[in-house]
Computed example of a mutant assay.
Amino acid sequence: MSAEPGTVRPGGRTARVRAAVLRAAGDVLAEQGFAHLDLADVARRAEVGKTTVYRRWGSVTGLVADLLDDMAEQSLPRAETGSVREDLRANAHLVQRTLADARQGALFRAVIAAATCDARTAESLRRFYEVRVAEWAPCVERGVERGELPVGTDAATVVRAVSAPLYYALLTTGTAPEPADADRAADAALAAARAEAYVVG
């Protein structure tokens, strides 16, 4: 059974082609949005053969899926400060910097918009966030082990609660969050967690 286009992880020259194509796709998304993402244009920007792009990714949604997978793989690892408060603040600041970045912020807005009307993009976006939440959840789990948070606290929910206000502000105001917004988001999630708002079971 052959793999779905955009799911095979290549090496060597093929890896360089993939990197160039994904970079070009990200540029188009950031500059023009999902509606203007075209495989032929991406191939031209990446300076690779159009046939190569069509054969490997097959469709715009296949390309976006691979782009999100790559972004998840390349994202920075979690912080391990020994304090759940500082770990959550580090997570919030990573999200804030990403959304405030001219290219990355525009790229995320484009992908989120596309996910509202395209099922495969929506699934790829969910997978991206599953990877990122799983990366940071151990910070909360360590906080529970150290007695900083109640036993039974749902780690994934706390991590989502940290970033949710930052995304909401960006999407509803069009203004990128500031570092102070990141601190407030982390502290609010921590206060709710300490008040057992995220205890399950």
Rank of each mutant, 00 (worst) to 15 (best):
A19M: 03
T172N: 08
P10S: 14
R132D: 03
A24F: 08
A134D: 13
L68R: 04
R18I: 10
A110P: 01
P77N: 05
T61F: 13
P77F: 10
T51M: 02
D187M: 07
R103S: 12
W57I: 04
A79Y: 02
R103I: 09
E47I: 01
T157F: 11
G62F: 04
L67T: 06
M1W: 08
T116C: 08
A137N: 04
D41V: 14
R16D: 13
G105H: 11
R78D: 04
D69T: 15
R16Y: 10
E145K: 05
L125G: 02
L68T: 11
T52N: 12
A197Y: 03
L22F: 05
Q96D: 11
A164R: 11
Q32R: 15
V133G: 01
R194G: 13
F34Q: 02
L94C: 01
G147A: 09
V84R: 01
E86K: 03
A25H: 07
C139V: 08
A191C: 04
R23M: 02
E4C: 07
Y198A: 03
D41N: 04
E86N: 11
R142V: 12
A192F: 08
G26Q: 06
R126T: 15
R78S: 12
T51A: 14
D154A: 15
L22S: 07
V199K: 01
Y168I: 13
R146T: 08
R194Q: 15
A134I: 10
W136M: 12
T52P: 08
R89F: 01
L166M: 11
S59A: 13
R18T: 14
A122H: 14
C117Q: 14
D187H: 03
V42N: 03
T157Q: 14
V140S: 02
E148S: 03
P150F: 14
A197C: 11
A40I: 12
V199N: 03
E130Q: 14
R103T: 13
G174C: 07
L39K: 03
W136E: 09
D38Y: 11
R126A: 15
V17R: 04
R89Y: 00
V151T: 08
A43M: 11
V111E: 01
V64W: 04
R97V: 09
T52R: 10
T98G: 14
A197H: 10
A40P: 01
R126C: 12
L76H: 05
G33I: 13
L99H: 06
D27M: 02
A180H: 06
A134L: 09
A65Q: 12
I112C: 00
E47T: 11
